[in-house]
Design a protein around this nucleic acid. Structure first.
Lengths: 197, 197
DNA sequence: AGAAACATGTAATCGGTTACATGATTAT
DNA sequence: ATAATCATGTAACCGATTACATGTTTCT
């Protein structure tokens, strides 16, 4: 599995940036769908990369803002990154509390289940909106990172998956909601059992 | 995010099992799509749960096989599990080296890209097959864990997402493959640059 | 007035993986 | 023969998160 150092090299291979900017890029862009890293891992990663000669930095003084350390990838860094890309990618990892909870939906109050599904759909919609926002080439601002063909592909892939997830939830939610409804009478006994035993 | 202890409580709430069997259930069943845990985390988790009174166990001697510790969830354990389910589920986490690599497909050899996509589709198909296998009520063996409505829902949800992912890859792979093809001539220069600089 | 954004960094902690250790049985 | 399955457990290690520390400016 790709570590934070490699993620930083990847971002920096597309242009110089500070640690703060790297964090923003991976939490806003299409990256956010399949990459994760906190400041607490990015800053030490950059320090380490600099020590190893894979990146260089210069301190940029700003008026009214804290100083910035602008990191630039080196030749050695580019080679290091190519080495990583030559290795077989690790398996995808998907962890979902939501689906885990759903498996035990008979232990959760019916209205809570519905609420959870609503929230999950809302989360998915928010992510889709974020992808749409960063995909459309904004005519006004230059700060939006322009996506190349590969970036658009990754973003669209994420969107396709999220839309399928929403569609499935909307079309089949009655199956987990109905179970509770159908057993409304019996459920009292089983809820009492669950709580009582 | 749900931890291994809670995953164990969830599995045990559906029936007694050994650590080994818990591991099998979460790597074979529909769980495998959204849950992960190694022996190195399951065994200590069970030890801890027993210490806290959330599970009990008895040692089952077997002929020709190592002894088993069969764990059973206690009343306290059921309540503990309900407490967890009452908390808001954590955000889904999806990590994909594959998509990260794709973003940098201009740094990877064209035939390698195609290979990676083929492999990714194959992985997805294998997962779908696994879901299908554990979803269909097998008439022969009783060892297949029978899925309730919620389990089937979770399995179908996973299948729907995987199928959408495959569809998108098959319909759009030319966009990342074509980029390399189109720039076959120029790419030599840029590849030399990349390697040279 | 207060929150949010900008900006970097460290220390404590944590949850989990990997590798190791052991060993019989069954399937190929 | 050899690999895979069954079965449990520990120790070393690792990568990453969280919280803390600090301080200005801009937006609401």
């Amino acid at each position: 599995m790709v570590d934070v150092k490699t993620v930083c090299l990847g971002v920096l291979s597309e242009g110089a940036a500070s640690g703060y900017e790297i964090k923003k890029k991976i939490e806003e862009g299409p990256y956010s769908l399949f990459v994760d890293a906190s400041y607490g891992s990015i800053y030490p990663a950059l320090t380490r990369l600099a020590k190893d000669g894979f990146v260089e930095f210069h301190t940029a003084e700003q008026d009214g803002r804290p100083d910035k350390k602008i990191y630039t990838i080196t030749q050695a860094g580019r080679l290091q990154f190519l080495d990583q890309l030559a290795r077989a990618p690790g398996d995808d990892r998907y962890r979902s509390d939501f689906l885990f909870y759903i498996v035990f939906s008979d232990l959760i109050a019916p209205q809570r289940i519905s609420e959870m599904i609503d929230e999950q759909i809302a989360r998915y919609r928010r992510k889709i909106q974020m992808i749409v926002d960063c995909t459309k080439t904004s005519t006004r601002s230059a700060d939006t990172q322009e996506l190349n063909a590969a970036g658009r592909f990754a973003a669209d892939h994420g969107r396709a998956i999220l839309e399928a997830a929403i569609r499935h939830l909307e079309e089949n939610r009655h199956l987990v909601e109905a179970e509770a409804l159908m057993s409304r009478e019996p459920v009292r006994a089983s809820a009492a059992q669950t709580a009582g035993i």
